[in-house]
């Protein structure tokens, strides 16, 4: 059928003879180099973060000792006191409040969606939950300040709740994280093999007993991973705490009082007029370094756990 004739595209090929040798293709090499470069941008970003945070905070730690930074209970840059504990404390309080909302609710949503809901209900509910995660966080900050705080004041007494308080920021943050937790938990629950479920039913367990005593324990590692990732998200969350938790470091465990978190402090200080190469400026990078290390560790632990349980069941 095909008559061997002079190949117009590759005149060097003998007619009728197919060459399977690899021809160098300069354009493709250029394209490939460009692709590698783009993939390497992510490494450059990581390097950039490490170098920027490293150099600025090493300049900071030349003047403030690491011990003073990590154990000081007062953060007052104007008088040279750089103890991160008040900021860290506020971060922990808001994050815990967030997890207290997000974990039980997220688990409830996940169990409902994975075990009880019909296909149609699931298909309608999941996109709605995703909308919650898609709303900009500054809108949640607005919500916390204008709705949740007045509500708390009404419930807990006008005087005991301050205008800015870590509780309202934390509660709203919990709502923000809820979709993340519920979708990760749901993935974990539905990846539990069917055989486990059927074995439980065969033993006479009710649907609830199967869910809570068989499926949830079997998916525990996935749930733990979701919890850790949610915690990391809560620690790094900024706008809600910047708007609703308060301005000014305050070393208190009372969630009804105003306190500034690490992220809130960075935003407030860098939003104002700040001169480069001042201690104020460098201290922000030291805080950012702590933030980076904490969230990175949590994320890596979470990923490690997810990977591990995947290997067990697949």
């Amino acid at each position: 059928m095909m008559k061997p004739e002079k190949n117009a595209l590759h005149p060097e090929e003998e007619p009728g003879v197919l060459s399977f040798g690899k021809r160098p293709r300069p354009q493709e090499m250029i394209i490939q180099a460009f692709l590698i470069f783009c993939a390497a941008v992510s490494i450059l970003t990581t390097l950039g973060i490490i170098i920027v945070l490293g150099t600025e905070s090493s300049a900071f730690f030349r003047e403030v000792s690491l011990w003073e930074f990590l154990s000081g209970t007062s953060w007052q840059p104007t008088v040279g006191e750089f103890g991160i504990l008040p900021l860290l404390n506020a971060t922990i309080v808001t994050s815990l409040a967030a997890m207290l909302v997000a974990l039980p609710l997220g688990m409830g949503v996940a169990i409902y969606l994975a075990e009880y809901a019909s296909e149609r209900v699931r298909e309608t509910l999941k996109p709605i939950l995703e909308v919650i995660a898609g709303v900009p966080t500054v809108v949640y900050g607005y919500f916390a300040l204008t709705v949740v705080t007045p509500l708390l004041k009404k419930l807990l007494g006008e005087d005991s709740v301050e205008v800015y308080n870590t509780l309202s920021a934390g509660l709203v943050m919990g709502v923000l994280i809820l979709p993340l937790i519920s979708s990760m938990c749901e993935d974990a629950l539905s990846s539990v093999p069917r055989s486990l479920r059927e074995a439980a039913y065969a033993m006479g367990a009710t649907k609830l007993e199967t869910s809570t005593q068989i499926i949830v324990p079997a998916a525990f590692s996935g749930i733990a991973a979701a919890f850790i990732l949610g915690l990391s998200r809560a620690i790094g969350e900024t706008m809600i705490v910047a708007l609703a938790a308060g301005a000014g470091p305050n070393f208190t465990l009372n969630p009804l009082k105003a306190a500034e978190t690490m992220t809130g402090h960075i935003v407030r200080i860098s939003g104002g007029d700040i001169s480069y190469d001042s201690m104020d400026y460098r201290s922000l990078f030291a805080i950012a370094l702590v933030l980076f290390l904490v969230t990175l560790t949590l994320n890596m632990v979470s990923r490690r756990i997810v990977k591990k349980y995947r290997e067990v069941y697949e």
């Binding site: 992510s42 990581t46 973060i49 600025e56 790094g236 969350e237 900024t238 933030l291």
Partner: peptide, 21 residues
Amino acid sequence: VNIYNLAGVPSIIYGMLGLAI
């Protein structure tokens, strides 16, 4: 792995990176 880790870095850290670079 690096890309997955970057996806979890808090957005404010990117702000610090942008400020410095």
